[in-house]
């Protein structure tokens, strides 16, 4: 090996060592260099999420009137003509009154804290069985229709990337982020003062074997 070669090898080793320690200093884990660059085009083709601030909402717009025919054609079979829900499919229509009492119901109108979530969910997962088939205008129109059913926006309100995040959902302030366990129980060992009367008994074992 010539001295020139030795110098190159030495230099490469040194550069390698510097890169290694440099990366380690910046973060806890070493870098391996596996994986490949993700282009803007690739990102935009999959990046469908919409945040509560409206980030991610595409250009386009829609009104309840524009959404009605589409709703009846693509949504009403499961969610009902008026958003009341068919069978065990979710109801879209409701108010906060259904959040208390014996039988509660969580509906778009009564429970969902953000209108952007409705746009995001219709866009990513609806209609069930043909997801990600709607255009942005159609998703805005369906979002407007469901919000208008719930009397949260007016029939003629135009929803777009600016107006949708500004829609204030009735239940917006009723969510509390969990911080640690809510229940603090003690482990009594003897003569514990607990009720031991049977007050409820399971009515049935009601399952089917998968594939039956």
């Amino acid at each position: 090996m010539s001295s020139w070669d030795k110098l190159v090898v030495h230099g490469l080793l040194l550069a390698g060592a510097m890169a290694w320690t440099g990366v380690l200093a910046a973060g806890e884990s070493p870098r391996y260099g596996f994986g490949s660059a993700l282009s803007e085009t690739e990102i935009s083709s999959w990046d469908i999420d919409v945040g509560p601030d409206g980030a991610g909402l595409p250009p386009g717009s829609g009104t309840a009137a524009q959404g009605e025919a589409l709703y009846l054609a693509q949504c009403a079979a499961c969610h009902g003509e008026f958003g009341e829900g068919v069978g065990r499919y979710p109801a879209l229509l409701g108010t906060r009154a259904s959040l208390v009492g014996e039988r509660t119901r969580k509906t778009v109108g009564g429970y969902w804290p953000y209108a952007t979530t409705l746009w995001d969910y219709i866009n990513r997962a609806m209609p069930f069985g043909n997801a990600q088939s709607l255009s942005p205008d159609q998703v805005y129109a369906l979002t407007a229709y469901v919000l208008a059913l719930n009397e949260i926006v007016a029939e003629d309100a135009v929803l777009d990337a600016h107006t949708l995040p500004a829609v204030r959902m009735p239940n917006r302030d009723c969510f509390v982020v969990a911080k640690g366990p809510d229940i603090k129980a003690a482990a009594c060992m003897h003569d514990c003062a607990v009720p031991v009367k049977v007050v409820g008994r399971a009515a049935r074992l009601d399952g089917a074997t998968v594939g039956e």
């Binding site: 919409v50 509560p52 778009v108 969902w112 953000y114 979530t117």
Partner: peptide, 8 residues
């Protein structure tokens, strides 16, 4: 992101 499966 306030997805459906963490709100509704």
């Amino acid at each position: 992101w306030e997805m459906r499966e963490e709100t509704a």
